[in-house]
């Protein structure tokens, strides 16, 4: 029989974190509390002679489901704080009476039932091999259908979260082409002071044709009148065509 102490521990470990669903503000805190609840429930399963289910509970819920929750929480913003003030009129009262009423009625009704407890000498324990016989024997069809359901759900989740590309992806070649067609300078802007002889920040760079590129000098220097035109760097025959 289940130890009384164990039951009360399990009860405390499940109910107290579960109440965080009602009172905690941060979703991450709630998720962690629910992980706690799941672990408690796994313990309960083991205590109820269903060790396989207990392990599955740990693996599926704490390992997969709750991690998925946390993952999504990170995705949508872990900082989303929720105002606990109720916005729907009367919703609190509805919640109080509906949930409270259901709980009370269930407890009342369950406590009125007396059931003969199965107390064999060697109790039937839900070991994996025993469960497997039932799962893949009597319920094999259900098992297969559930497998299909899982695949469909996975594909469905993919479809739901997939954002289709409406236009074809632009290649680097296409982007460069578009830039040139828009009238941009085909070459990279050189830094000022190429071919410098002194503090070259005040000398404009030269393009491949040998013309100075005024944009390559800082606007500040231009405003101060501290630039040089770079005429001196040109061959004498071309000096007429150079403009500042």
């Amino acid at each position: 029989m289940v130890n009384d102490v164990l039951f009360w521990v399990i009860a405390a470990v499940t109910v107290i974190p579960a109440t965080s669903l009602l009172f905690a503000r941060k979703a991450v805190h709630i998720a962690m509390s629910i992980v706690m609840v799941m672990v408690g429930l796994a313990t309960a399963y083991v205590a109820l002679e269903a060790p396989f289910l207990g392990i599955v509970q740990i693996v599926v819920y704490t390992g997969a489901v709750m991690m998925l929750f946390l993952f999504v929480l990170m995705l949508v913003g872990v900082d989303q704080r929720e105002e606990l003030k109720e916005t729907l009129k009367g919703q609190r009262w509805i919640a109080f009476f509906a949930a409270g009423g259901i709980g009370t009625l269930l407890v009342v009704q369950i406590s009125r039932v007396t059931m003969p407890v199965y107390r064999p000498d060697n109790p039937l324990v839900g070991e994996p091999d025993v469960i497997a016989v039932v799962l893949f024997g009597k319920y094999v069809l259900v098992m297969e259908v559930l497998g299909a359901l899982l695949i469909i759900a996975a594909v469905g989740a993919l479809v739901l979260t997939h954002v289709p590309r409406l236009t074809p992806r632009q290649t680097q070649n296409e982007r460069a082409r578009a830039r040139v067609l828009a009238g941009a300078n085909p070459v990279n802007k050189p830094m000022p002071g190429v071919y410098a002889r002194h503090n070259a920040l005040d000398v404009p760079a030269l393009d491949p044709e040998g013309k100075p590129i005024p944009e390559s000098i800082s606007r500040v220097l231009k405003a101060r009148g501290q630039t040089r035109d770079g005429k001196e760097f040109l061959p004498p025959s071309k000096s007429e065509g150079i403009e500042q």
Binding site: I94, F97, A98, A99, G101, I102, L105, L106, Q109
Partner: peptide, 10 residues
């Protein structure tokens, strides 16, 4: 929905 469940339980 829960109200309906409540009525059934009642």
């Amino acid at each position: 929905i829960l109200g309906g469940l409540l009525i059934v339980l009642l």
